[in-house]
């Protein structure tokens, strides 16, 4: 009895671990190449908002407020310039356009070569996309 139970548990666990099929591979959420820059931008906006609030409630002197605001705006501009630079490089093809993790593209592409069609606007794509590049609607159904 014990031996049977023990074997069942062992076999069950090992089978569960080893039987990974292609469709069990997770579809990663798309990661924008601007992700960390956007985060940075959002953080600076947030800092600006805090600064404004602290100034309004009277925690800051005028001079501190103006100076810090200028600093933050400068940083914001620098981040925006960086975003534009990356955009330009993508447009010029210097760095590849973002795609889901390469290994997954390979396996998915092997199953259904070439065509990914948006269910809403019928646009065609060579890569699996989470959202349609034309109309922006979710494209998950099209891949399955």
């Amino acid at each position: 009895m014990t031996i049977v139970l023990a074997s069942l548990v062992a076999i069950g666990v090992i089978a569960f671990i080893l039987s990974v099929r292609a469709k069990d591979l997770p579809q990663p959420e798309p990661v924008s190449p601007f992700h960390h820059l956007d985060e940075r931008k959002a953080a600076i906006y947030e800092n600006l908002r805090d600064l404004q609030f602290e100034y309004r409630v009277g925690k800051l002197s005028d001079q501190d407020y103006q100076q810090t605001k200028l600093d933050l705006q400068r940083e914001l501009a620098a981040v925006m310039a960086e975003i534009d630079r990356v955009k330009a490089e993508i447009a010029a093809g210097k760095i590849p356009a973002p795609a889901p993790a390469p290994e997954l593209v390979k396996t998915a592409a092997a199953r259904a070569p070439a065509k990914f069609i948006c269910p809403s606007c019928k646009a065609e794509f060579a890569q699996p996309l989470k959202f349609c590049g034309e109309c922006g609607k979710p494209m998950k159904a099209a891949q399955a």
């Binding site: 600006l48 914001l76 620098a78």
Partner: peptide, 20 residues
């Protein structure tokens, strides 16, 4: 940096206007 700031000032001001 000020030159960069100048380039993006309009956009920033526009965004900031929505800040509460």
């Amino acid at each position: 940096t000020d030159e960069t700031l100048g380039r993006y000032r309009d956009q920033i001001e526009q965004d900031l206007a929505h800040l509460d």
